[in-house]
């Protein structure tokens, strides 16, 4: 029986729909364990992101959860000076370029000069 649209049939628990969701999840736990933010601070940041997404028209049915999670992770990283918007943007472009310059099947690596 489908209780809500998009509800996966996961009787024994989720977990992740894609590797990036697991990576984002683990990053938050690792940063918290390192004492870089409190869990209360994290929960508040995530709650805010969900409210913002909801207001922007996301029906928020649970399938976009890790998008909110990642947005909150970026927000808290910037707020606590773990990274900067410029740095993140630059690194994203570097990864994009690395994919384009790496032959298919070879490991993707950032070149030292980037």
């Amino acid at each position: 029986m489908q209780k809500f649209p998009h509800q996966p049939q996961d009787e024994e628990g989720p977990v992740f729909n894609a590797p990036w969701e697991a990576q984002a999840f683990a990053l938050v736990l690792a940063l918290h364990e390192k004492g870089l933010f409190s869990w209360q601070e994290w929960a508040a940041t995530l709650g805010d992101e969900i409210v913002v997404a909801h207001a922007a028209g996301d029906p928020d049915l649970g399938n976009t959860y890790y998008e909110h999670w990642l947005a909150a992770l970026e927000t808290i990283s910037l707020k606590n000076n773990l990274s900067s918007a410029v740095e993140l943007d630059r690194r994203k472009s570097q990864w994009y370029a690395a994919y384009l310059s790496t032959p298919h099947g070879k490991p993707i690596e950032l070149s030292a000069g980037d």
């Binding site: 990036w20 990053l27 992770l73 990274s83 993140l88 690194r91 994203k92």
Partner: peptide
């Protein structure tokens, strides 16, 4: 995915 990779590699 690129956003996650960027953040993870920097951290």
């Amino acid at each position: 995915e690129l956003r996650v990779k960027a953040l993870e590699s920097l951290l």
